[in-house]
Simulated scan of single mutants.
Amino acid sequence: MKNPKIRVKKMKEKKLMIAEWILDIVLIIIVSFIYYLNKPIETPKVLYIPKGSINQIISQMQQNQFDVCKLDSFILRLIGSPQSGWIDMGNNKNTKADFLYRLATAKAALQNVTLIPGETTYVFLEQLSNELNLDFDILQEEFLKQSPIQEGILVPNTYKIPMGITEKELINLLLKISVKRMKELSHKIFGTYNETKWFGYLTIASIIQKESANNEEMPIVSSVIYNRLKKGMRLQMDGSLNYGKYSHAKVTAKRIREDKSFYNTYIYKGVPKIPICNVGLEAIQAAIFPAKTNYLYFMKSKKGTHDFTCNYSTHIQNIHNATK
């Protein structure tokens, strides 16, 4: 029979070995965890976090090719649930620890930028460039690359723009919001969304937006457009030449003669192939639901509103009254 003292000694040695083994494992885990938390991760400087559970957020970030995993879900539960909305990551490169901490605590500073009905995308991009300190050329390049149409797709609105957003991210944000709103309006009116048909209405709505003195006139201006088109008449509307960088330029007789673009409704029949500007809901509704009139002409009076008429002779008299 073995000596009890030897047996106790061996048991103590075994326990010590197990303790040392456990300690080694713990140390490995701690070192690995520290290494993981110091691992670099690249993200946009400003990141959008959708609403949802931590697992849903991590899953969506994985779909967007971010280097995150289930361990991050566990760590976030210890730190705190990520806030939905725009997050200021501080830098494009962070350690995993800083990244997770910012997910749970940071918010991006937002700046309001307003797109008014009737404004062209060119001028709005200039506004964005000036107010957000972004590169106009890159904004324009990204818009033409991402947008399904060169003009008229943006919905007039006051947008909350996160400071630090890149040109590419900003255009993507504006288009997502606008296209979603366009589809909602189309489904509300027609029960479906046909992009080609919708863009056709946007083009007519853009002329209405540029020509109308107020919202009340819009269905009447719309009726004039449709009546002239039905008769095969040129629209001959100054507002069609207030496109792009000419959004606020006075349309002169010289400009009408020299502008050979497809926007010039004095030269070409029909409506331009794309909208002239970005339009409000009232102009879209007027394009879809024009007033029932026989009007073919209108002229801005000294009151600032328009005089509408069916007869050219009366139209000439209205021009005389407005200019005398």
Rank of each mutant, 00 (worst) to 15 (best):
S301P: 10
M61F: 15
H248C: 09
I267C: 04
Y243W: 10
I149L: 15
G304Y: 10
P117R: 01
H248E: 13
F190H: 07
I274Y: 13
W86V: 04
I6S: 08
V155M: 05
F136I: 11
R255N: 09
Y312E: 08
S222P: 02
I161D: 07
S301W: 09
N278V: 03
S301V: 10
N294D: 14
W21L: 15
E167S: 09
W21Y: 15
K183H: 05
E119K: 07
L296M: 13
K230S: 11
L37G: 06
I319A: 13
H306I: 04
I220D: 07
E167G: 03
S301E: 15
H306V: 04
A249T: 15
N92P: 00
A253D: 11
N318K: 12
V26N: 05
S222E: 02
I25D: 04
Y246L: 11
I207F: 03
M11T: 13
T121F: 07
A291H: 00
V251L: 01
K188Q: 13
Y101N: 09
Q111G: 08
Q60G: 15
T314G: 06
Y263P: 05
N157G: 07
D259L: 04
L296A: 09
I165P: 00
I256Y: 06
T305N: 13
G118E: 00
V68A: 08
I267T: 15
E216W: 03
R255G: 06
I18W: 14
A253F: 09
Q111D: 02
I54E: 04
L47S: 05
P275K: 02
K51S: 13
L185I: 13
D135C: 10
V68S: 01
F298G: 03
K93L: 12
S301N: 14
K15P: 04
Q146D: 01
L154F: 02
V221C: 03
K188P: 01
A97Q: 01
Y122Q: 03
T196D: 13
I316E: 12
S129F: 05
I276C: 04
L134V: 10
Y246H: 10
C69H: 12
D72F: 01
Q140S: 11
K160D: 04
I41Q: 07
A287T: 01
L37F: 10
K180G: 04
I34F: 12
R234S: 04
S313N: 10
N112W: 08
K51T: 09
Q285L: 14
S129G: 07
A291P: 03
Y35S: 14
W21S: 15
R102V: 01
I284V: 10
P117N: 04
K269Q: 13
G164I: 05
L115A: 00
I274A: 14
L174P: 08
S53G: 06
N130F: 07
N92K: 12
I75C: 00
